[in-house]
Simulated scan of single mutants.
Amino acid sequence: MSLHDDAVLVLKGYDTDREDQSELRRTYLDHLAGHPDGMWKACGAGHLTASALVVDPERGRVLLTLHRKLQMWLQMGGHCEPQDSTLASAAMREATEESGIAGLTLLPGGPVRLDRHPIPAPCHWHLDVQYAATAPAGATEQISEESLDLRWFPYDEVAGVADASVVRLVEGTRARLEQGR
């Protein structure tokens, strides 16, 4: 199965009762149907990306990266690569590379959220599929070349440093964690 096929299956299985997320899911599926290259950075109409919010639920905090190019606090994530066999593996690869933490575990249930945001030309959109991953006990982060900084934030401090998309991802992740208890 190709990464494109996996993305279609993941999106078709993405369960949401929120209207905005249902509309985004349809937008993503329409994009993939119209763009066989819609998984890759080279797709000029935009492309899917994969990200993961690294969370330490025992201590009530999330790890955010100060993105070097955007100079914003964000979850770990980025472009899909040819070696990625699934969206989930792309999100895990990005989270591991950018956090420096080995042994991350994706929360069950697939993506937590979808987020579509504009990017500069020649591409025009990132269609981000957002997962969440728990860090193992005693994990030590390691800053990557893509980051200016890497820092743990208590849940209630995220709104003071990050944009609304990250806040919504934290809220969705916390709700998913509560469901699992």
Rank of each mutant, 00 (worst) to 15 (best):
P36F: 03
A132P: 05
L32R: 09
L150D: 00
P136S: 00
L29E: 09
L87W: 01
T16M: 08
R25M: 02
D56M: 04
D15H: 13
A159D: 11
E171H: 11
E178A: 14
E146Q: 13
L150N: 02
A52Q: 07
L104Q: 00
H47A: 06
T16H: 08
M1E: 13
Y14C: 01
D17L: 14
G13D: 11
T86V: 07
R18C: 01
V8Q: 05
V8A: 03
V170M: 02
P82H: 03
T173Y: 06
H67K: 10
R181K: 10
D30S: 12
D37A: 12
T65P: 00
A88N: 05
T65I: 14
L87Q: 04
L3P: 01
D17E: 15
G78Q: 06
A137D: 10
R116P: 08
H47P: 04
L114T: 11
G172T: 03
R168P: 01
L66Q: 09
Y14F: 15
E97S: 09
R61Q: 13
V158I: 09
Q21A: 12
A45V: 06
H79D: 15
A159H: 14
S144G: 08
S22R: 15
R18N: 05
E98C: 08
G160T: 03
G110V: 07
A88T: 06
V112P: 05
V166E: 12
T140A: 13
E97T: 09
E145R: 14
D149E: 13
P120H: 09
R68S: 12
A52S: 11
Q21P: 01
D15T: 12
R116E: 14
E94N: 13
E171G: 05
W125Y: 15
R93L: 08
I101Q: 02
P82E: 10
P111Q: 10
A88K: 08
R61H: 07
R68I: 06
V54A: 05
A162Y: 08
V8M: 07
M1R: 12
G60A: 02
C123K: 15
H47T: 04
G44H: 08
C43W: 02
R168I: 02
G180F: 06
H35P: 04
R18L: 14
E94R: 15
G172L: 02
L24T: 09
L24I: 10
D30G: 02
L9T: 12
V170D: 03
S51C: 10
L24P: 00
H4T: 06
E97M: 10
M92D: 03
Q142L: 12
G172V: 01
H47F: 15
T27F: 09
D20T: 11
E19Y: 11
R116H: 12
T173K: 04
D156C: 06
L24W: 08
A88P: 05
H35D: 10
L53F: 08
H126N: 14
E145D: 15
H67W: 07
L87D: 00
A164P: 05
T86G: 07
G160Q: 11
G160W: 01
T96D: 05
T140V: 14
Q83P: 00
P136A: 01
L48V: 12
S165P: 04
Q83A: 14
D37W: 01
R113L: 15
E97A: 09
L9I: 07
A33S: 11
D56G: 05
R59P: 03
P111E: 13
L177R: 00
H35S: 11
G60C: 05
M39D: 04
S147N: 11
G109N: 07
A33G: 10
A91Q: 01
T140C: 07
L9A: 15
H79Y: 11
Q83C: 06
